[in-house]
Design a protein around this nucleic acid. Structure first.
Lengths: 216, 216
DNA sequence: TATTTCAGCAAACAAGTGTTTGCCAATATA
DNA sequence: TATATTGGCAAACACTTGTTTGCTGAAATA
């Protein structure tokens, strides 16, 4: 009838408001665990009690934020995959894309990083699962790329784990640093990844070479 | 005179009790940020008010724990250095030593990992500094080892950063996993590190090689 | 021995917390 | 239009939080 929103849409919107409020509050330095319900509802412009029309408790808010971050991570991966299919240099550009996403909504990823070692076991498990599936997807991309380039490597999943751990931890830790420092981290990350590529390849090839060349 | 402790010793002891109590409370799942003063003092067997005879506030307790963890990290590094000087395979044994330390006092390192992305900026900075000096020390060890083996690599500090990030994050995350899983992580970590060694060496050699090729 | 020092304590304080209740008014449904 | 639904709210509940105050009794000092 009117140009206003339907009831369900309204509800969805204030739900979004709550999540946005939580993120904003976390932007100025604190983690999710030290985030008060009243703080969030105040920022969202609703009464404390109204919170419970949208989430059963604070932990559920945390899980919702995690799954939002999960979607954002998936988006990053899709971008990386697109780059891979275009045949561009995946290392440099992927790191750039990734850091760009981190910058764009840094608070969201900081939730992931913080709560990965945070207080709620439930949330911790959720994040662990999320990162694990991410690793598998990344491994698949790496394998595809390697096949396309007729390279062989030892273990794409291991590579994925190392790369994602580095990008995730170093990247997010630098998200609130000045821009110049961020660019420096970008360079270091690209270097790390390239080293891992070299290493994986060298190790795979060494299995067909004489052992005494590089004895570990 | 008597067999009892002097006053200063007593004070030091209850200070230790407080820190131990905080660690114990954190062992069963929670982070430092969600740790209550009353919780700690109760565990330590003192009144809440007595806490302030030893620390100005909770944040100072956190800093004290960080510096204790720092000492423990230094101990790990000394062990690694000793292994290097003995000429043992540094990768496998270092990872083992490291994980052993993680297991031994896991709660302490979990503080480091959690508060590295935690709520107190003061504590965060302290941890960042700690990890940075650690990287420099590790880089020095790596450089020494490489020189001893007559290998050349690109950048020991980069290697150190990658290795410490991986060991720290993957290692600590697995500290509360079942033993079998821990051993698996140990294997993966050793693999990661070895890959990085291979990669750094391969990259250094390729630079040398391509330069020579261009000359000819 | 007399005096000072000070770790430890109970109690109170001012704010904070998450959550529940009962009600209202606007929307959706019949 | 009448009825049922439900998002939002003020207020209260039952805690828990970090911190301060003034005191006590034992150890250290003179």
């Amino acid at each position: 009838m009117t140009g206003t929103l339907t009831r369900a849409e309204q509800k969805q919107q204030t739900r979004n408001n709550i999540m946005a409020a939580a993120l904003k509050k976390m932007s100025d330095d604190k983690g999710f665990s030290s985030l008060g319900l009243r703080e969030v509802t105040k920022e969202a412009g609703i009464a404390p009690a109204s919170f419970y029309r949208h989430f059963a408790n604070m932990e559920e808010l945390g899980l919702a934020l995690v799954s939002e971050a999960e979607e954002a991570l998936q988006a990053i991966l899709q971008d990386a995959k697109a780059l891979e299919e275009k045949g561009e240099d995946i290392v440099e550009s992927s790191v750039q894309v990734c850091m760009e996403h981190f910058r764009e909504n840094g608070a969201l990823f900081r939730v992931l990083a913080r709560e990965a070692t945070g207080n709620s076991p439930l949330i911790r498990r959720a994040i662990q699962r999320c990162l694990m599936t991410l690793n598998h997807q990344l491994a698949e991309i790496i394998e595809l790329e390697m096949r396309r380039r007729h390279r062989k490597i030892t273990n794409p999943l291991y590579m994925a784990e190392a790369i994602s751990t580095l990008v995730f931890n170093l990247g997010i830790a630098s998200a609130d640093l000045p821009y110049a420092k961020q660019k420096e981290v970008e360079k270091r990350l690209a270097h790390h990844i390239r080293i891992i590529y070299w290493g994986a390849e060298a190790m795979a090839n060494s299995q067909h070479l004489s052992r005494n060349l590089m004895l570990s």
